[in-house]
């Protein structure tokens, strides 16, 4: 593995202050993507700033929203009585990320900041009208994911927490790669009274909202003719863009039927 120096931030302020302006330092959350990326020479930071001591974990339930600290591990979201009560589909999603050991280390902030096109959380962020809080501002999920592994974060900007709207109902449907368990396609459907919202991950370069399907309402039985922009769909050895588009329609119907 490449050489780098390691330090553990003791607070949010300490973490942001430690960030190197030249961009050679990286925040280390759970490390479940960053460390394998460094090993494979896909990334070569000179310094890692560990956020585990920065006080960024925890779950808070409000009247209309549930807020999850950036360093909250997937296993803790999956097991949280508060999350299971307020948004069971979100706990279900967290419990299906990777495998048990990845869930014991991986964090919501790390996953969102990495913006992997096949990560699970982005679908929920879109479906639940989430707001990404950073040390500097609040970014709506729809404006957060902007490209393949690209997001609205500026250099040195740090996610502090993610705030989800509590829906009337929600369901997550995932067609997982059997080896990696990443989503080949994942669909998070949510209803807010009678308004429906659909977040899709895995299909395209970044998670997106399928607004055209939302208009068909909760009782929809057929989405085959609903328009779906495939211009930035992924095509790889696991699934072609056409097959992914098919999965988006099938999984959306399944998720909506569970609302």
């Amino acid at each position: 593995m490449n050489e780098f120096s390691y330090s553990r931030a003791t607070s949010l302020r300490d973490a942001v202050r430690s960030q190197d302006k030249s961009g050679k330092a990286k925040y280390l959350a759970g490390g479940q993507t960053l460390l394998p990326s460094i090993k494979q020479l896909l990334d070569a930071p000179e310094r890692l700033i560990d956020l585990s001591g920065a006080g960024l974990d925890g779950i808070e339930v409000g009247r209309k929203t549930i807020t999850i600290g950036a360093m909250t591990r997937h296993a803790d979201v999956a097991a949280s009585a508060q999350v299971r009560e307020a948004i069971p589909a979100l706990a279900d999603l967290a419990g299906r990320i990777g495998d048990a050991q990845v869930r014991n280390r991986g964090t919501i902030g790390g996953s969102v900041a990495n913006s992997d096109p096949a990560a699970d959380y982005p679908a929920a962020l879109i479906g639940l009208c989430a707001i990404v809080h950073t040390n500097a501002r609040k970014i709506p999920a729809e404006k957060f994911f902007v490209g393949l592994f690209q997001n609205a974060l500026k250099s040195g900007e740090l996610i502090t927490k993610v705030e989800f709207e509590i829906p009337t109902g929600a369901a997550y449907e995932k067609f997982a790669n059997p080896a990696s368990r990443y989503a080949i396609v994942g669909v998070f459907a949510a209803s807010f009274d009678h308004v429906m919202r659909i977040g899709v991950t895995g299909a395209a370069h970044f998670a997106f909202r399928w607004a055209e399907a939302e208009g068909h309402g909760l009782g929809v039985k057929d989405l085959s003719n609903v328009s779906l922009d495939q211009s930035r769909f992924n095509s790889d050895l696991y699934a072609s863009a056409t097959y992914r588009a098919h999965l988006v329609r099938v999984l959306t119907l399944r998720a909506v039927s569970r609302l």
């Binding site: 553990r8 014991n104 280390r105």
Partner: peptide, 12 residues
């Protein structure tokens, strides 16, 4: 907690 020790730094 069970973790993969190849994907965690000793420092962590």
């Amino acid at each position: 907690r069970s973790v993969k020790s190849c994907t965690m730094l000793a420092a962590q």
